[in-house]
């Protein structure tokens, strides 16, 4: 059941028991329902027994609601929440490799300054740039540099954190 209506980017945060096999259980729920994961990030939380999976997808919100209920049934899942909203801060880390042609130097260096990104390493004709930002910033960054020739991209996908002190401890 691939839903196409009213698709928008959703970010879901899932707290899970930090155990082997849990990711395949979570992935199975998405796969079985034909729900495409756009990005996925997994890391330990303040409690080493608990991991947080943050994932984004483009989907219909009703469909996401159904998936959340399905996930909630998994024994190893502690909590599922939608972190797309205003009360969460979202960030993504992106690395891109850009070809630098003669004559483009000045423009590129200026863009680097404007975007507030970092040159990780460089050769005369190839820069690796690093940017951390909100999803719309990383998107604009990528779009801009594509006009110069982006050879490679790697990105973490969104991670998110509550703006205020969390109500409960993990």
């Amino acid at each position: 059941m691939l839903k196409k209506a009213r698709e928008q980017e959703q970010t879901i945060s899932i707290l899970v028991n930090n155990q082997p096999g849990v990711l395949s259980r979570v992935g199975g729920v998405f796969g079985r329902h034909g729900y495409n994961i756009k990005s996925l990030c997994v890391a330990e939380t303040t409690n080493p027994d608990v991991s947080r999976i943050t994932l984004t997808s483009e989907s219909d919100p009703d469909f996401t609601e159904k998936i959340k209920k399905q996930l909630d049934k998994l024994v190893d899942i502690i909590n599922v929440s939608d972190v797309s909203g205003q009360s969460y801060i979202q960030r993504e880390l992106m690395l891109i490799g850009v070809t630098v042609k003669e004559g483009a130097y000045a423009e590129i260096l200026r863009a680097i300054e404007l975007f507030g990104c970092r040159i990780v390493t460089m050769t005369p004709d190839y820069f690796i740039l690093e940017l951390t930002g909100q999803p719309d910033e990383t998107a604009a960054f990528l779009k801009f540099f594509q006009s110069f020739g982006v050879e490679e991209i790697n990105r973490t996908g969104s991670i998110a954190i509550e703006r205020t002190k969390p109500q409960r401890r993990i």
């Binding site: 259980r25 199975g28 998994l74 024994v75």
Partner: peptide, 9 residues
């Protein structure tokens, strides 16, 4: 792995 989608857990 084989029984993942057909078991409760």
């Amino acid at each position: 792995g084989i029984t993942l989608p057909i078991t409760k857990h």
